[in-house]
């Protein structure tokens, strides 16, 4: 409504500056009252860093050498470990085993973002935003471990913008690909590549798994969801030492 009164603009910008200045003074232990100010300060800081700095924030690990990171992780954590890199987020992180429940295994980053796998297949993520809430695999995990081709249906579940859970059913075709030998973080793997192509209407998901003779998934590239895209997972250690 300020449009019909041009003189209000200098006044409004003055108010804005004052509000931001006051934002820095908000204090107290009642978060229901201080949160608004904290958000305003965060927004102002974000704007400032966008305006005055071309550098990426130092927390981004995109330039980290995966092998070096793997060595550090192996030396500092005794339990099962994986390495995950998410292209769209530009992150490479080591995740240590956080919990095990039946055939599912949950791994966590240092800042408690988690990925949950059932027999090596991703069935959930938490703390990334746009998370995969859960997944029904159908026979995918047993076929992959047996390095066998097959056709089946599987379901991914997400929360929509209203936070209502929505299933995404997919029709999948699993094919056996080429033999592939590689070394990662000091361990040599002899694997066969399995490619899983899943489809629903306009969407195609292409997951790949590199599986050893004993059914271990040494490396995989798996889909998290439409927003985050794919994560590449390398096995660092499968059992506690």
């Amino acid at each position: 409504m300020s449009l019909n009164s041009p003189r209000i603009f200098p006044r409004a910008s003055c108010l804005l500056v004052l509000l931001l200045a006051m934002g820095l003074t908000a204090c107290g232990n009642d978060t229901s009252r201080t949160e608004g100010t904290r958000i305003a300060v965060d927004v102002a800081k974000g704007l400032k860093s966008r305006l005055f700095s071309g550098k990426k924030s130092p927390s981004s690990q995109s330039s980290a050498d995966p092998e070096a990171l793997a060595t550090i992780a192996l030396n500092s954590f005794p339990g099962p470990l994986i390495m995950a890199s998410i292209d769209s987020l530009g992150t490479v992180s080591a995740l240590g085993e956080f919990g095990r429940n039946g055939d599912t295994q949950t791994f966590s980053t240092a800042v408690q973002q988690t990925m949950t796998f059932r027999n090596g297949l991703l069935v959930g993520t938490r703390g990334l935003g746009h998370d995969l809430m859960s997944a029904n695999l159908g026979p995918a995990d047993s076929l992959i471990r047996k390095r066998q081709a097959g056709t089946y249906k599987r379901v991914y579940r997400y929360l929509d913008g209203e936070a209502i859970e929505r299933p995404l059913p997919l029709s999948c075709n699993l094919t056996v690909g080429e033999v592939s030998d590689f070394t990662f973080a000091g361990t040599r793997y002899s694997t066969v590549q399995l490619d899983e192509a899943c489809k629903v209407t306009q969407l195609t998901v292409n997951n790949s798994y590199w599986v050893t003779r004993d059914g271990t998934i040494a490396r995989s590239r798996q889909w998290i969801g439409q927003v985050i895209g794919y994560v590449t997972i390398n096995l660092l250690r499968s059992e506690r030492i």
Partner: peptide, 19 residues
């Protein structure tokens, strides 16, 4: 309202169940 400007779920993950 169904399209938030930011992804929801930017939080620490829950503790996993301990069977």
């Amino acid at each position: 309202p169904r399209r938030p400007p930011v992804p929801s779920g930017l939080e620490t993950a829950p503790l996993p169940v301990r069977p």
